[in-house]
Design a protein around this nucleic acid. Structure first.
Lengths: 187, 187
DNA sequence: ACCTGAACACCGTTCAAGT
DNA sequence: ACCTGAACACCGTTCAAGT
């Protein structure tokens, strides 16, 4: 009689993601993941090719959720308000998923594997197109995302150690960037 | 008769840094480092506490070099030219040290250990103070560094995959940020 | 003092044998 | 079909014994 399936790829990814966020990358063992889903470690290899494949699946999951949360943040009709909402959503997501968020941009043994997990948000490009005009959409979007990502990464890494108000620095930076958008208006 | 010292902490850090940059974090083994400096793995533990301690020493070394290269890039007398030179030096350094640069901001098992390796540049703060005024120095410097770091990280992670000219996006972003500095002037 | 071989613990991964 | 114990390879780390 065939043995029943006792776990699934989705369960493994969910458990792995949770453990990864909770304990960090070094402490994530296949044994722990197996225990969390109720099987022994060798059984995981029926669903995932390797530990690094599991990381890839986890980060794809995180990237999809981030993209969805960005897209959901837009829709007010006002591009400036949308952009503020999206950057706030982006930062909130990173704060809620600090380890996995940072890992999405970490160097990997397989070059390009990291990149594949980072998706663009259609809503972001649409809003930036309204603010910056069609010719500048791509560089303007890259400027905004670079600033937001860089700010958040440094914040999460504890790189802001000269005192001062980090919230104020976030608002200052966002205002600066909004101010130079060709089709800007202050919110 | 005492055995002569056959290696040093500096040699271990240099060899480790080179291997780390060349092969990536996962592939850096204590055996490889030991072989590179001409001893056996157990001897490394006379100089470094652990593998993660070696990582810390390597990233401190990288951070010090980055800070020095930023400070060296300033000095033209013109704050805008200085800032352009410093951001170019920053990006050039990251391109020359992609793995270790990115690792400086990676999440660590020991919270705060990462942050300690990222230093501020006195020259950068001085130049930004001239451009943004004393009240806005800190948030303005954070905006610039966040943008530059974010841009470079995404670039290194291969996150810019929608085509377009990445160099142009860099120049666009820098111009945007310079344009809103309170004491700005276009170079 | 510093170096080393041997040993230990831990973990990713494979595989033959169970059901 | 899927699961498991056992085994293997690899690696970080310790330590007693060398010089």
């Amino acid at each position: 009689m065939p043995a029943h399936a006792q776990t699934s790829t989705a369960a493994i990814v969910a458990a792995g993601r949770h453990l990864l966020e909770e304990r960090g990358a070094d402490a994530l063992t296949m044994q722990d993941v197996a225990e969390a889903v109720g099987v022994r470690a060798p059984s995981l290899y029926k669903r995932v090719r390797s530990r690094s494949d599991l990381f890839r699946l986890i980060l794809e999951d995180v990237a999809d959720e981030l993209t969805a949360s960005l897209d959901a943040a837009a829709g007010s009709g006002d591009p400036v308000a949308d952009l503020r909402a999206m950057t706030a959503a982006y930062r909130g997501f990173a704060h809620s998923n600090p380890v996995t968020y940072t890992l999405m941009f970490a160097p990997d043994s397989v070059p390009g594997a990291t990149a594949r997990s980072v998706r663009s948000s259609a809503a972001l490009l649409r809003v930036v197109a309204e603010l910056a005009g069609p010719q500048h959409t791509l560089p303007a979007a890259r400027t905004i995302v670079a600033w937001a990502h860089g700010f958040i990464t440094m914040e999460l890494a504890g790189a802001f150690r000269l005192g001062g108000d980090v919230e104020q620095a976030w608002d200052f930076g966002l205002d600066q960037i909004l101010a130079v958008m060709p089709g800007r208006s202050r919110a």
